[in-house]
């Protein structure tokens, strides 16, 4: 039987391996980095507003 539940590393900043592993890894990564990404997006939006 092939290893369907192969463990992979989930760094906060993400990597290609996570995307290539598919659904499980992506969900796990989102749990790890979720808040950080939202903050970045907020920052981006704020910058855009300032520029406009």
């Amino acid at each position: 039987m092939l290893n369907k539940d192969k463990k992979i590393e989930i760094p906060v900043q993400g990597n290609l391996g996570i995307l290539a592993h598919g659904d499980i890894a992506i969900e796990a990564w989102r749990k790890v980095r979720g808040a950080i990404k939202e903050q970045e997006l907020k920052k981006d939006d704020k910058k855009k507003d300032e520029n406009e």
Partner: peptide, 17 residues
């Protein structure tokens, strides 16, 4: 829908290769 990846989620680490 929850499994989709948005381009905003792509980080520098994904792009470096």
């Amino acid at each position: 829908a929850s499994l989709r990846v948005h381009p905003y989620e792509i980080t520098a680490e994904h792009m470096l290769p």
